[in-house]
Design a protein around this nucleic acid. Structure first.
Lengths: 322, 322
DNA sequence: TAATGTAGTGTTATCGGTAACTCTACCCTA
DNA sequence: TAGGGTAGAGTTACCGATAACACTACATTA
């Protein structure tokens, strides 16, 4: 007990005893056992970051922001990749529950993550949603402006004369995909361009899905002059698939997308895209989470971070004939 | 106790009792407390990954490999970024000690990490070194062939007629920097090219250091026709600094480097570089670590993963006059 | 029939901390 | 000088699991 008081600097300790304890602690290389402390205090000082894939440059930077913020506040950070899979996500949720982390910062795999979030709530584990909303779940979240970003991109294309613009989207089960579709449709509508369902294809936000999208793109008639790929890795794979098929980008087809490629964008920004402040997503997500942990009764907060259009070589004005 | 037996499937339990317990567990949404289990079993099923910076595409992929391997084996993964700082690393080591993780996979900030590793050893925490060796520490490690890789790069440059090749290296306190210098010198020596100390500059492997290096590069006379930047982010920042100074790359100066840029390399590999299998670094590092945890008496193992030269647009043959 | 074995369940101590309380000097005050 | 206060240290119970052991029926065996 006396040792505990010295370590935590609580209660009354004579200077003599304090020094003696400290000396012995040094001699024995004593390190307090966080596990035991967690058990009695009922908090682990650990947060869980559950994202879809750390190798996606957007989430890489999110993770960095999250880790920085967690560390600054004395928390440890557990990492998990769900790969957009509800099942894998559930496994992580199970781990999170038994680990008794103090909070979870999560990018849900989609609307079907709702039961997972409800499970967290039922067990009293605070969580903050990152990047994607889940209908029916009222909680703190850090989001981007997907509708606005998509509008900007499509409007930009239209401004360059494009009229037949395809959308290679994520799954409609994911809020960002729905929002990007909404923004796409808004932009078309505002410019009086008809919406052609055939120009919209769904995927699972994963690079593997691009090949099928490329095939469908190629089969469209009249063929689109531009395509909006709903996220960065999708755009990249799509680009590869298109080039493999001999379709020149941007010569024959322009591409725009969401989220940058980290260091890639620095050197020579190939893609025209809407960039989001990934680091702030992570940092502010953790901040919200910690504030939630400290005050469970506060009303949920919703932070929307701005995005920005940056132009690259992936877009060319539409040919006047088109 | 009976519940414990059901959960862990140990001891004798009648089918009737098992079902009853399982039913009640479901009803109560009971989840075993990993903290309590850790305390009594003296293991946390948690590993720590301590790297310099997750946003470096090399370490991003390392982290993904590590997380996959950890999860497959039932371990959780804690993430930490040391930013090449011994002090920050020490803070993480302290956390690791009190957290009682079962093992640590670490990219040491440099030779001065030795005390940290000795601390881990003294506390009986298994660790595996990743990417960088530390003199005086005999332990499991997963390394790349820095000497060979550097030789390949410099030899490639020499083959293209370059004779004045600069090296923007990391700190000599880091084994990979020493090895890359050694490989550089080997390649020069084998081709009978004299070693010019003025052509070698040190940095801290961090992008911020590139500006100073660019300045020194520009001041060299005769100026080099090529430069070997010891890692990817250094190369990228160097490139930016050089271009800002009006030095054309590759027109006036060719650049080669170590480690790729993840997705960046896929699209249009600008840099000529030696790529290392980052995912395997992470995966095999965790494998070694887990095997070490399970058998502390086995002799240390040293895995050296191969690298591969991939060419890009950052290199041009030297002008015949040079 | 008594001894022995065994399946199934319960009890106790423990991991390493901390909250809450107790205890012992010693001091001050009326 | 008795009563009360206080500084500083110690005691006890507890967090939620598991190892080791104990116990109770009942079955088997000699």
């Amino acid at each position: 007990m006396t040792v505990s008081r010295v370590i935590n600097n609580t209660g009354r300790i004579s200077e003599k005893t304090r020094l003696k304890v400290q000396k012995v602690m040094e001699e024995l290389h004593y390190v307090p056992n966080a596990t035991a402390r967690s058990l009695v205090l009922q908090r682990t000082m650990t947060l869980s970051l559950l994202i879809t894939d750390i190798t996606n440059p957007f989430y890489t930077t999110v993770a960095r922001g999250a880790e920085d913020a967690a560390r600054e506040n004395g928390y440890k950070l557990l990492l998990g990749n769900s790969d957009e899979s509800v099942d894998k996500e559930r496994e992580y949720i199970d781990t999170v529950l038994s680990t008794r982390v103090d909070g979870v910062l999560i990018t849900p795999s989609g609307d079907r993550s709702r039961p997972h979030l409800e499970t967290l709530a039922r067990h009293g584990i605070p969580f903050v949603i990152l990047d994607r909303e889940v209908p029916g779940i009222a909680c703190d979240c850090v989001l981007g402006d997907s509708v606005g970003g998509a509008r900007k991109l499509v409007d930009y294309l239209i401004g360059l004369g494009h009229r037949r613009i395809a959308l290679v989207n994520g799954s409609p089960e994911v809020s960002t995909a729905r929002d990007r579709l909404a923004g796409y449709r808004q932009a078309l509508a505002e410019r009086g361009i008809g919406f052609a369902p055939a120009y919209v294809m769904e995927s699972n936000y994963r690079p593997q899905d691009a090949e099928a999208a490329a095939e469908r793109l190629q089969s469209l008639s009249p063929s689109p002059t531009a395509v909006f790929a709903a996220n960065n890795l999708l755009a990249l794979s799509l680009l590869q698939s298109l080039r493999k098929r001999g379709i020149g980008v941007p010569e024959e087809l322009s591409i725009v997308t969401f989220d940058d490629f980290g260091y890639m964008s620095v050197l020579d920004p190939f893609f025209t895209l809407v960039a989001q402040p990934a680091y702030e997503f992570g940092r502010q997500g953790i901040s919200l989470l910690i504030e939630r942990i400290e005050n469970r009764d506060a009303p949920p907060r919703r932070i929307v971070l701005p995005n920005e259009l940056t132009t690259g070589r992936s877009v060319r004005p539409a040919a006047p004939s088109a």
